[in-house]
């Protein structure tokens, strides 16, 4: 790799997933992030009750992300051959876990509505 620019990275991701799937995922990620910011600003606080449930969803998010990457790239867990592979693998899992946690937290907040603290500890 000679010049790895932001533009090149975008092109790379478009190629990996296809134009529509990639930009669909970007749009989904932006919508979830904006919704997350919205509920945080609206509620002016982070609810630990919702956060707890969100944490419970993290392993599922991690597994789903790893599965997705493996299927898209014709790979298998046994293909991991060195330290850098383990880092990439864990990175995918961590991204999936965090993404899923944000999604679950946001969905709970949106569904339960503003100021719903009745179920808090």
């Amino acid at each position: 790799m000679k010049d790895l620019t932001f533009q090149t990275l975008i092109a790379v991701f478009e190629e990996i997933f296809g134009f529509w799937l990639f930009w669909g995922m970007v749009a989904a990620a932006v919508i979830v992030t904006l919704a997350y910011i919205y509920v945080l600003v609206r509620d002016r606080s982070l609810s630990m009750r919702k956060f707890f449930l969100a944490q419970l969803s993290m392993p599922f998010g991690a597994v789903a992300a790893v599965w997705f990457v493996m299927v898209m790239t014709h790979s298998h867990v046994s293909d991991i051959g060195g330290p850098v592979d383990v880092i990439v693998f864990l990175g995918v899992a961590v991204l999936g876990a965090i993404g899923c946690a944000i999604l679950v937290y946001t969905l709970q907040s949106l569904m339960r509505g503003k100021g719903d603290t009745s179920s808090d500890l």
Partner: peptide
């Protein structure tokens, strides 16, 4: 209860 809310 003070631990259940983190200010954003």
């Amino acid at each position: 209860s003070h631990l259940t809310q983190i200010p954003a």
